[in-house]
Amino acid sequence: MELIFFFIMAVLSVLSALTVVFAKSPVHSVLSLIVTFFLLSGQYVLLNAQFVAIVNLIVYAGAIMVLFLFVLMLLNLKDETEPQKSNLVRLSVTISAGMLLLTLIGSVRGAIAIPPSPAQSATVGLVENLGKILFSDFVVPFEVASILFIAAMVGAVLIGKRNKETDSEPLTTF
């Protein structure tokens, strides 16, 4: 049963990921990316990671992708005006991505060494457990992530400001 779910969602997510890459219109790309995220959340549920699944939906599908759509609409980029790369470039890029895929899949062979540990797995993905880890072991990264957010906010504000004063008088006597 789970295996069937897995395969259906896996095939669909690969298809929608391919749509992201090959869709003519950026809006279609965004929409299929959202579909991919939903399918991945399904995988998380299969993996007993219900909390991650919900957060994934809220953060990615809910926030980030809306931001993308918003920018697309703001810049009015719905129309397909993108010039294509030459066939040679496309071919070589596809080949190199394929090689990457082969390498990655080649590395699967060694993964058998990991035995599943169902006893712990049942509780790993619960909010209680994750919250404990986040606020005990991960408290420093949690705080440090706030620096990241402030930096990103200040950066976005800086870019948002129009720089009007570049040609004013020198102010310092250094």
Binding site: I150, V154, K161
Partner: peptide
């Protein structure tokens, strides 16, 4: 100090970002 001599309002943002970095 000399390089940003022309900046007024955004100077603090520049310095802040470099310090965050």
């Amino acid at each position: 100090g000399y390089f940003y001599r022309g900046l007024k309002d955004t100077l603090a943002d520049h310095y802040g970002l470099l310090l965050f970095s």
